[in-house]
Amino acid sequence: MIFDGFMIAGTIVCAVSVLLGLWSTARHRFPTDASILSLAAVELFLVVYGIAAGVRQSGGETLVGAAWEFWGYLATAILVVLLAGWWGIGEKSRWSNLVMAAAGFTVFVMLFRMQQVWIGQGIF
């Protein structure tokens, strides 16, 4: 599979978010600014990724898979991060860190799938 710069950047941003969430959960801490801001960084990445994908697609690049599938994954990923951030801000327990970490991992899996839809190459 060919990974572009967006996939590499997304992997890094999601990994940092997951690690901060797991670290805060293991240390029995309430959601800190760092874990909430790391989730905000994932959201910002998704917005930039969506804008860049729209520009690329309107510029003539075609998706190998279905366009509705790619944009559906992107919209769902944005909603997952928003809901996890809302949960993390609303519930001040150590387990909300785990929810935010799970959101970062979920977005990574969705980015991987969006990459497959865009390029059309599977891992298997």
Rank of each mutant, 00 (worst) to 15 (best):
F30Y: 09
I2W: 03
L20V: 14
L74M: 04
G59Y: 10
V13P: 08
G104R: 06
I89W: 13
L83E: 05
A101T: 12
V80R: 01
L46C: 00
R29F: 13
M100F: 11
A102I: 14
V42A: 00
D4F: 06
V107G: 11
W87A: 02
I36P: 07
F112N: 14
A9M: 13
I8K: 08
V117W: 10
W68G: 02
I123W: 13
Y49H: 05
T76G: 05
V55F: 15
E61L: 00
V117D: 04
H28P: 06
R56D: 04
I123P: 11
M7D: 07
F112D: 12
A15K: 12
A77F: 10
I36M: 07
S24T: 13
E69L: 12
R56M: 01
W95F: 11
R29A: 15
L46S: 00
N97R: 15
G10R: 00
D33M: 12
I123A: 14
G10D: 01
L39S: 12
V42D: 03
Q121G: 15
M1V: 07
T11K: 12
G88P: 09
W86V: 03
M110W: 03
I2Y: 06
A40M: 03
M100E: 10
W23I: 10
R113P: 07
L20E: 13
G65D: 00
V42W: 05
I123Y: 12
V47Y: 10
G54Q: 02
G5C: 00
V48P: 11
G5T: 02
A101H: 14
G21D: 08
R27Y: 09
E43A: 04
Y49V: 00
G54R: 02
V16R: 05
D33T: 13
A41M: 03
V107S: 09
E69I: 10
L39N: 10
G10W: 00
V109D: 09
Q57Y: 14
A101M: 14
A26C: 11
W68F: 09
F124K: 15
V48N: 07
A52G: 04
I119T: 03
V55D: 13
G72A: 02
T76A: 07
F105I: 09
G88H: 05
Q57H: 14
W87G: 00
L63R: 01
T62Y: 09
G65L: 01
E69H: 13
I119G: 01
W71H: 11
I2P: 10
V80D: 01
Y73D: 06
L63T: 01
A84Q: 05
L74C: 03
E69S: 11
L44D: 04
I78Y: 14
G59A: 05
W95E: 13
V18D: 00
F108L: 07
A15C: 11
P31C: 11
A101Y: 14
F108T: 03
I36W: 01
F112H: 09
I89H: 06
T106Q: 08
L74N: 03
T11M: 13
A53K: 01
